[in-house]
Amino acid sequence: MNIPNTVTLFRFILIPIYLWIFFSEIPHRMEWAFFVLLLAGMTDVVDGYLARKNKQVTQLGIMLDPLADKLMMLAVFLSLLASQRISIPAALAIFLRDLGMIIASAFFHFQGKLTVPANLMGKLTTVLYYIALSLLMFDHPIGGEFLWGVIIFSFLTSFVYLFQFKQINQKIM
């Protein structure tokens, strides 16, 4: 297990910590929950940087990194849904898209297919989701509309990934 993959595994640990804080009664819980979310985002940048810099990009990391991102995002969006900060249709769209990406990635990985590493559109989608989350967590008036823009962009990004997946796996056949 290399350092970038260990940092990625740390992000999985942050998910229940975020949920515990979000649903707790501690003072400034939203600020603390947002801090955990930012920590997850920063460690995402760090693990990717370390993997590339130290030439430690692995198939395991390529699969675990987006899985950690997706599961954190799902946890955050489910907490926002439970606290009525986002609508059911928005949560359903996010959930279905991310669940589809997780299932497809795991399915193809275990079939020995190559998975597509994060690209610029995927990274931009993640940044935009973080912005939407911050707007929603702190009840900003444009949060809902901004979120729908990000959802649409995320579906476009998914289609790009599917196209790239098809391309890289046709090359190895």
Rank of each mutant, 00 (worst) to 15 (best):
Gly144Arg: 13
Lys55Met: 05
Ile142Glu: 06
Phe108Tyr: 10
Leu124Ile: 11
Phe146Val: 15
Met42Asp: 02
Thr126Glu: 01
Leu39Tyr: 00
Ala91Met: 09
Trp148Phe: 04
Arg85Trp: 02
Leu9Glu: 05
Gly100Pro: 03
Arg29Glu: 05
Arg11Tyr: 03
Leu9Trp: 08
Thr115Leu: 08
Met72Asn: 06
Lys53His: 08
Asn54Glu: 09
Ala82Thr: 06
Phe146Tyr: 14
Lys55Glu: 08
Lys70Leu: 04
Met30Arg: 15
Ser134Ile: 08
Pro89Glu: 00
Tyr161Cys: 06
Val46Trp: 04
Ser105Ile: 02
Phe34His: 12
Ala93Gln: 02
Trp20Phe: 14
Val45His: 11
Ile151Met: 06
Glu25Tyr: 07
Asn54Leu: 13
Val46Ser: 03
Ala68Gly: 12
Arg52Leu: 07
Arg97Phe: 01
Ala51Gln: 10
Pro89Asp: 00
Val150Trp: 07
Leu124His: 06
Gln111Asn: 13
Asp98Leu: 12
Arg97Tyr: 02
Leu19Glu: 00
Asn5Lys: 12
Ala93Asn: 00
Leu120Lys: 10
Val36Asp: 04
Val45Met: 14
Val46Tyr: 01
His28Ala: 15
Leu99Arg: 00
Gly100Gln: 00
Ile26Tyr: 04
Met42Leu: 15
Leu50Arg: 13
Thr157Leu: 02
Leu67Thr: 10
Phe22Thr: 04
Leu9Lys: 09
Ile168His: 01
Ser134Cys: 11
Pro66Tyr: 00
Ile102Val: 14
Gln84Arg: 10
His109Gly: 03
Arg52Gly: 05
Ala90Gly: 11
Thr115Phe: 02
His28Val: 06
Gln170Thr: 04
Leu162Asn: 06
Phe23Thr: 06
Gly143Cys: 14
Leu128Val: 12
Ala132Lys: 11
Phe155Thr: 08
Gln111Ser: 10
Gly41Leu: 07
Ser134Gln: 12
Leu14Trp: 03
Ser24Gly: 09
Met30Tyr: 10
Ile62Lys: 13
Met173Leu: 11
Thr6Pro: 08
Gln84Glu: 06
Val76Leu: 10
Pro4Lys: 07
Gln84Ile: 04
Thr125His: 05
Gln111Leu: 14
